[in-house]
């Protein structure tokens, strides 16, 4: 057998390559079965960038369907709650051109507020809420759990007595952070620490007196 192989070198090489091809083919096939990825990972990643208000302003019944539609080729500028930041992040992820937002941007985060004395307890808003943020029972007053409300507006439309208002989020004050300086060529807009230091660096009065 060995002799025959050495005598027919070309056949030996072919057999060796064939054997390797079969082995690696089997290995790849096995790996493809074992490490199979369920679903489309791009959809998950797009879904993670969307604001998850489930408001349906994009024309799809939730954020995940919109994420799937984007993968199918829909525009990335249909999410008003996400605004420009989300469009930029999506453009970055998908390698597409960022487009201006289709629709009106939301200026500040809002939450639904039920004027409780006017509520008739119809439970229509409870059924409309995508995140179960409204509490109540039939013929009893309803109320919104502020921490869970995403401000999606979906409960406003079904209310038969129009007792739901969208108010600015009460945590707005807590979200304060230091503003960005205006940039080169300007004096800092606010006289805060860093600017004090800058002025403190100038010769101190006593030093000036000496000099």
């Amino acid at each position: 057998m060995l002799e025959w192989l050495t005598a027919h070198g070309i056949l030996a090489a072919t057999l060796a390559l064939l054997g390797l091809a079969v082995a690696f083919g089997a290995l790849l096939g096995f790996a493809g079965q074992v490490f199979k990825v369920e679903g489309d990972p791009v959809v998950e990643r797009i879904d993670a960038l969307l604001p998850q208000t489930q408001c349906g302003q994009c024309g799809y019944p939730g954020c995940k369907p919109y994420a799937e539609a984007i993968v199918q080729g829909d525009d990335i500028n249909k999410c008003p709650p996400g605004g420009d930041a989300t469009i930029a992040a999506l453009a970055d992820l998908l390698g597409r051109e960022p487009k201006p937002l289709d629709g009106e941007a939301q200026d500040i985060p809002r939450v639904a507020y039920i004027r409780e004395e006017e509520c008739i307890g119809c439970t229509k808003c409870i059924q409309a809420c995508p995140v179960d943020a409204i509490l109540g029972a039939a013929k009893h007053m309803h109320t919104v759990i502020v921490d869970e409300c995403t401000g999606c507006d979906l409960c406003v439309e079904p209310c038969p007595v129009d007792c739901i208002d969208m108010l600015p989020h009460p945590d707005l004050a807590k979200q304060w952070h230091w503003p960005r300086p205006p940039g080169p060529g300007h004096r800092p807009s606010q006289p805060i620490a860093a600017t004090l230091i800058a002025s403190d660096r100038q010769p101190a009065p006593e030093e000036r007196a000496h000099g």
Partner: peptide, 30 residues
């Protein structure tokens, strides 16, 4: 005013993180 830039950036990052957490929470509830 370098510190002011850093503070602004830190604030923006924290805000962004909080929003991402909130979105994740809303998604789970949905």
């Amino acid at each position: 005013p370098l510190v002011q830039y850093y503070r602004a950036a830190k604030g923006e990052i924290r805000l962004h993180e909080r929003e991402a957490r909130k979105a994740e929470h809303a998604r789970h509830r949905f």
